[in-house]
């Protein structure tokens, strides 16, 4: 692996979102701030504690996780799609960047954007008193792994999409619904019995629950199962993305 090549690719990814900071950074900060204020602060004051933590503290990790995963997803998917659309991806294709460097460059680009978004939301959360850290190292681990998984998903969508409609489809039909149904605002027990059984198959449930445990110490699921899901997705998707770059799926055809 060549670090100059990798660093250049990461710089290139960052340059694209730094050109439109309102859209890529400020917008999720404002939307997360509103979620924290309305659901956590205003409504949360009228809801009992869950698992020994206030509703504001309970709901904050879910809001943070949703923004981290959607930020990394959007970065990788949009970044790759627009490079295909504008044909600037040919700069990468003619260069000696390896398939692994391509995979890592786009993934780290997504993680960095997610970390910038997440850091801003943490600051907003501090203002509302919504931030605690039961296990800071675990928090960093969950943040990076979740961002990496969704960067990898974003790469696949960025390669697959042939229109702006397709590019947004996964976000609309999968990411947003599964985040909301993955325990962002509620515990498993608050759901109807059938939904409780379905929820354990929703990987977002483990992302949010892991993040919540790292921040509040309250977990609604078996963390070992959650981590098996997370790491299986991380390594499985890494393998898929590496292979797609190797065969040049949708870019060298």
């Amino acid at each position: 692996m060549n670090f100059i090549r990798l660093y250049t690719l990461i710089r290139r990814q960052m340059d694209s979102w730094l050109r439109s900071p309102i859209n890529s950074i400020v917008s999720p900060w404002i939307s997360a701030g509103l979620f924290i204020f309305i659901f956590g602060f205003v409504l949360g004051g009228r809801i009992d504690e869950i698992g020994g933590v206030s509703y504001l503290l309970f709901v904050f990790p879910g809001i943070l996780a949703m923004n981290v995963l959607s930020g990394s997803f959007m970065q990788a998917a949009n970044g790759l799609y627009f490079q295909r659309f504008m044909k600037t991806i040919e700069e990468l294709l003619v260069s000696p960047l390896s398939y692994f460097e391509l995979m890592l460059g786009f993934t780290v680009g997504g993680i960095i954007r997610a970390l910038v978004i997440g850091s801003g939301i943490l600051v907003i959360g501090l203002i509302f008193g919504a931030v605690t850290f039961a296990n800071p190292l675990l928090f960093i681990y969950y943040t990076i792994v979740i961002a990496a998984i969704f960067s990898l998903v974003g790469i696949i969508i960025g390669l697959w999409a042939n229109s702006f409609e397709q590019l947004g489809a996964l976000n609309i039909f999968v990411i947003t619904p599964l985040s909301f149904l993955g325990g962002m605002f509620n515990t498993l027990e608050m759901l109807p019995p059938l939904m409780q059984k379905i929820a354990v198959f929703n990987p977002f449930f483990y992302f949010i629950d892991g993040m919540r445990y790292a921040m509040t110490g309250f977990a609604n699921s078996n963390l070992l199962i959650g981590n098996i899901v997370l790491l299986t997705l991380l390594f499985g998707l890494s393998g898929v993305v590496w292979y797609l770059f190797k065969i040049g799926w949708r870019i060298r055809e």
Binding site: N2, I4, T8, E90
Partner: peptide
């Protein structure tokens, strides 16, 4: 390669375009 179509980033400057390309080739 100098391609037939203009495939450079339209919002980038010539210096950025050259710098990125050099970086992709591993130049310090």
């Amino acid at each position: 390669l100098s391609p037939q179509e203009f495939n450079a980033d339209i919002f980038a400057t010539p210096v950025q375009i050259l710098d990125w390309m050099g970086g992709y080739y591993g130049m310090s």
